[in-house]
Amino acid sequence: MAAQSIPVSGWLSSKRRSQQVAHSITYVLLIIFGLTFAFPLYWMVATSLKTPPQQVVVPPIWIPHPLVWQNYPKALTAYPYADYLRNTLTICILNVVGTVVSSSLVAYGFSRIRWPGRNAVFILVLATLMLPYQVTMIPLFLIFRGIGWVNTFRPLIVPSFFGNAFFIFLLRQFFMLQPAELSDAARIDGCTEFGIFYRIILPLARPALATVALFQFMNSWNDFLAPLIYLNQQSKFTLALGLQQFVSAYGSSWGQMMAAAATFTVPMILLFFFTQRTFIQGIALTGLKG
């Protein structure tokens, strides 16, 4: 990161030096915690590269040697990875679009306009998160069954276009971080409410929107239960279903299971790595001088 330029003569100034000390401490902490947090992923990949005898040694081998790749062809061909990936991406992308658009609109209505009854309705929104899905799952299925949507992607996609309570709450909190004066000034300038939403609040909330998009993508990617219940044709299955099948079938080999888990996970990690910059961009937009 170029943001941190190591000062050439800066160590002379005590302020700079104390900053450097602080950075060093940060760094050490980051590395210690980082190792801890990277461990699950490391373990997953390491196990997937082990020979079967290496997988069963006690105490465990931390670094596989030799590396074997044989688990990967199996994991990628056991189910039609490409087809399932296409299905999963279709669902994920549409869900992200639906959620970001609808939840931001609704969150705006709950945070930056005052209207009578707003609080009561907002509590109702939150309350929908509080009832365990286990008991609403089947009545919901009956609705989709009634309109003939079973065995299509629609039950997995359409609801996201009507706002999700979790994301509405999240965005509401972020919209409330923005000073009220911003809206007031715009209103005086004759800006419509939608104009304020679209031109002022949304751009300011980009880090939050990115978070919402990421979370929704991940939720849809990992969702196992809804596809299981609604899809009756293998050609429509998603990666999460494929992984589940693989895991129950190749239960006796940690290596194969971890290889399958890795092929399931890697796209998500890449997505996060390349989008996390969005969380930083917020700074530039609020007009911070570098």
Partner: peptide, 20 residues
């Protein structure tokens, strides 16, 4: 044939409740 991996009961109950 159709493989139901994972929560077979949830899938079966939904299908029965939905009449399919």
């Amino acid at each position: 044939p159709l493989v139901i991996s994972g929560d077979a009961n949830a899938k079966f109950l939904s299908a029965v409740a939905g009449g399919t």
